[in-house]
Design a protein around this nucleic acid. Structure first.
Lengths: 162, 162
DNA sequence: GTTGTTGCAAATTGTTTGCACTGGT
DNA sequence: ACCAGTGCAAACAATTTGCAACAAC
């Protein structure tokens, strides 16, 4: 342990400074909970549920309250630093906007696993939606559902994520 | 019509009888709440949230309890008579399976409206997902999100359905 | 010092569950 | 008569909010 995953402490620090700048532009402030949430998101590198974030944050700083995590995530979404993805029946997941290659999330109905796919799998669909209904698709905002390779062939397992 | 397509009272009755048969095959029973829920779903012809169903059911029979609506919807899903769709951050919506031509749901992030699109807009995406990841897409199980024609051009309005 | 933010606890909202009783077969 | 299903209230889970104290600027 000690190391915080792919981004490392430097990455987190740079991120915190960048966000701090954005906050100051709006007369808002960089606080301990916000630093902790940013660190948690950066360390994971992927999508985390609120519960995941709370766990990661409390692990580092037990004084941070759940409510602050909710408020912080909302604030960071407002800044455009963080995005959320709706995953089926389950919880909402959050991730940093920055360098992540745009990708579509799909969840296995059977085992609950979330799989990332290249963003362009929905290009054709997006084009048709615009042409036929004027609807501009946001491909990353919700996770589609179906059955993953494993469950499609082998036996399904526990979770059954709706 | 005649069979089950229409929403008229005769259609409801036919539906109830069909479901009753399915229930009896499993040693289960056709009850007042179940009739009421089926009627509500048939009458709407579209997708209803649990809250919508509860409202419609209570409107006809105030003795039916919310909990029974939940239990009934779950039971009907188990029978394969009803399906649910996850709509963004909002609630889960339910609809009869035979109801309409299979269609994809998309929700406008800005005004919250749910738009129905032909099911085949996701055909290309589904094909690619199977080929590249072995993932079998269920196109109707979740609503995608984006911006509807109205909100894309004109000014966005209230709801902001995340 | 100002005021944006927090921690806390209580209020909300949405869904599930234990249990005695009702009602379908 | 038997037991699936109901109504009810209470449990549960997830998220929000009012407010006094705190800390970032």
């Amino acid at each position: 342990m000690g190391d915080q995953g792919a981004d490392g402490h430097d990455g987190v620090h740079a991120l915190v400074e960048q966000v701090e700048r954005l906050l100051h532009q709006r007369g808002e402030r960089m606080t301990r909970p916000r630093r902790a949430v940013l660190a948690a998101l950066a360390a994971s590198g992927g999508h985390l549920t609120v519960e995941d974030v709370v766990a990661a944050v409390v692990d580092v700083d037990a004084t941070v309250h759940r409510a602050s995590v909710y408020r912080t995530l909302e604030a960071l979404c407002g800044l455009g630093v963080v995005q959320h993805v709706h995953i089926g029946h389950g919880a909402t997941a959050y991730h940093l906007v920055h360098d992540v290659t745009p990708h579509v999330h799909v969840q296995c109905t059977s085992c609950g696993a979330v799989v990332d796919l290249p963003a362009d799998v929905l290009d054709a669909a997006a084009t048709r939606m615009v042409e036929e209904a004027g609807f501009v698709l946001d491909p990353t905002h919700v996770a589609l559902s179906g059955t993953c390779a494993g469950c499609a062939s082998g036996p399904a397992r526990a979770p059954s994520a709706s």
